[in-house]
């Protein structure tokens, strides 16, 4: 048997161990990305093979957290793809305004940059007092960072440009305080945000949403897991609620494709047309 094939077995065993021991299900993730990141993780340990990591993660929870942190991609930025935020501002917000109360869900929010970006936008549109933002991820380390509201100062120039392109009404600097080489986002932005651990592979719906952001998460999922997450979004959205995916993600070929209409197709913003069966777990209030 070739080395590559043996490595594949090792990888399968490791993922199985993570799943059976902690419930983290990476078995339906893009393997190429995990493999690359595992090599990187391995280089930081005294071990030379993937299988050597297994006993450690089974018996040592901290080792498992370190591995999880290294194999999941939490790279993110503020106002990524500024034109998407512009479309939200110009096309989605006018419709959201018609609701007395608005629930927003950022699924896979990583370290929170995307969440604060939208919070700024909602504040500028005068919706802060009637919006609740749920920001979830299954990576606790990332969530902890998100809660601190602290980001590196050196990225702010780039973010300011994106903020302007996203139709920003003032200056991004109005929303943070710089301190040495870091910035802290204004506390007022966090008032409506609830950060929580939620796993798209295993957890269920937790409330009725008007807007769901899930960007650059599905690209790491295989078709099975994508369908699971998308069905969860469909079940969580109110009728006419919005789903915003990453620029390279699409509902085409998914199981729920026909339950959504493209709203701003180029920006991957979809509108949910799914009528929940009677006895829905949510009281729609509409």
């Amino acid at each position: 048997m070739q080395q590559i094939e043996i490595e594949q077995i090792e990888l399968n065993l490791l993922l199985e161990a993570l799943y059976q021991r902690y419930g983290y299900d990476f078995r339906h993730y893009s393997q190429a990305s995990i493999k690359r990141r595992l090599q990187y993780h391995l280089a930081k340990t005294p071990h030379t093979s993937i299988s050597a990591l297994i006993p450690e993660i089974l018996y040592n929870e901290a080792a498992c957290q370190a591995l999880l942190f290294d194999i999941s991609v939490t790279v993110t930025e503020m106002f990524r793809d500024a034109w998407v935020y512009l479309a939200i501002r110009e096309k989605v917000i006018p419709l959201l305004r018609t609701y007395p109360f608005i629930n927003v869900w950022h699924a896979g929010c990583a370290t929170g940059e995307e969440v604060y970006s939208l919070a700024i936008l909602l504040q500028e549109e005068g919706l802060s007092d009637r919006v609740r933002i749920y920001a979830t991820d299954f990576n606790d380390v990332a969530l902890q960072k998100a809660k601190t509201r602290i980001y590196p100062l050196k990225r702010m120039k780039e973010y300011s440009q994106s903020y302007q392109q996203a139709g920003g009404k003032s200056s991004l600097a109005d929303y943070y305080h710089a301190h040495y080489d870091s910035v802290i986002m204004n506390e007022s932005l966090q008032q409506n945000i609830t950060f929580a651990n939620h796993n798209l592979a295993t957890d269920g719906s937790f409330g009725e949403m008007h807007l769901i952001f899930c960007r650059n998460v599905l690209i790491y999922f295989n078709q099975t897991l994508q369908n699971r997450a998308l069905t969860l979004f469909r079940d969580s959205l109110c009728y006419n609620g919005f789903l915003c995916l990453g620029t390279k993600e699409t509902l085409r070929f998914s199981e729920v494709e026909h339950e959504f209409n493209p709203f701003v197709e180029s920006e991957r913003i979809y509108q949910c047309k799914y009528q929940k069966p009677n006895g829905s777990i949510f009281n729609t209030g509409q």
Binding site: A32, S33, N216
Partner: peptide, 21 residues
């Protein structure tokens, strides 16, 4: 490969994208 995304080849002969560093 699209701009701003890494392109990877999967063991099951599908493509995947990543916004990894």
């Amino acid at each position: 490969a699209p701009a701003d995304y890494h392109l990877l080849i999967e063991p099951n002969h599908t493509l995947s994208l990543s916004i990894d560093a």
